[in-house]
Amino acid sequence: MEEQQTPFQAAIKPGLTMGLVALAITYIAYFIDSSLLASLWLALIGLVVFFGLIIYFGKQYRAELGGFMSFGTAFNFSFVAMIISGIISLIGQILLFHVIDPSLPGVLTDIAFQKSLEMMEGFGQNPDSLPPATLDEIRNSTAASFSIGGQLKNFGIGLIIYAIIALILAAILKKRDKSLDY
C-alpha cells in the first residue's frame, strides 16, 4: 500500500512549479518591456494563473487522498505551496532588481509614482496642491518597496495575504465524505 504524502510534502512540487511560473511571467514581461512590471494587467494575469494552478494542484492532491480532503488539509496544502512559491518569486525578484538590472527599481518607482499622481487626479485631488514634502514621501516610500528590506517586508505582509487566500482556497478544495455521516 502506497503511503500518502502529508499536505506539507505534497505542497513542495506545486509550490516550486508556481514559483517558477511566476518568475517566468516576471522575466518574460521584463524582457518584453520592463514597464509591464508596473502594469495592473500583468498583476491580474499573474493572479488568475496563480489561482488556477493552486486549484489544479489542490484537486490533484485531493484525488490522491481518495477524492476527499478536510478544510485543514486543504488550508495547509495551499498555504505551504504559496509560501514556497513566494520565496522563489522573492529570490527571483531580488536577483532581477539588484543583480541583473539595478536601474530597474528607479524606472519602476517613476512609473508607480506617475500612476499614483494620475490616480489622485482621477479622484479629484490635484497633485500640484500637495506640499513637496508629501510628494517626496510618496516617491521615497515607493522606492523603498524595491529595496531588499522593502521586498522582505512586502513578503511578510504577503504571508498574511497568503493565509487569507489559503482560507478561500481551502473552502473551494475541501470535500468531505458524506458516507461517514451515517
Rank of each mutant, 00 (worst) to 15 (best):
T26I: 14
T142D: 02
M119L: 09
Y162G: 11
L23N: 15
W41R: 13
K59T: 13
S116P: 06
T134S: 14
G19C: 08
I138M: 14
T17F: 13
L47K: 10
E121G: 03
P102F: 01
S116F: 10
L117Q: 05
A81Q: 00
K13C: 05
I55M: 05
D128F: 11
A22T: 15
V99F: 03
I12C: 00
D110Y: 10
D33S: 11
M119N: 10
I168T: 07
L159C: 11
P131Y: 12
R176I: 08
I160Y: 08
L42V: 03
I94M: 04
P132W: 14
M1A: 13
L90T: 02
T109W: 03
V49F: 07
I32K: 12
L104E: 04
A24H: 10
I28E: 11
I148D: 06
H98E: 02
A63V: 11
S85H: 13
A163Y: 08
G106P: 12
F123C: 06
T73K: 10
I55L: 07
Q5S: 12
I54V: 12
M18H: 07
H98V: 06
N154K: 06
S147D: 08
I160H: 07
W41N: 11
S116Q: 14
G52L: 00
E137D: 14
G19I: 02
I54W: 01
L36T: 04
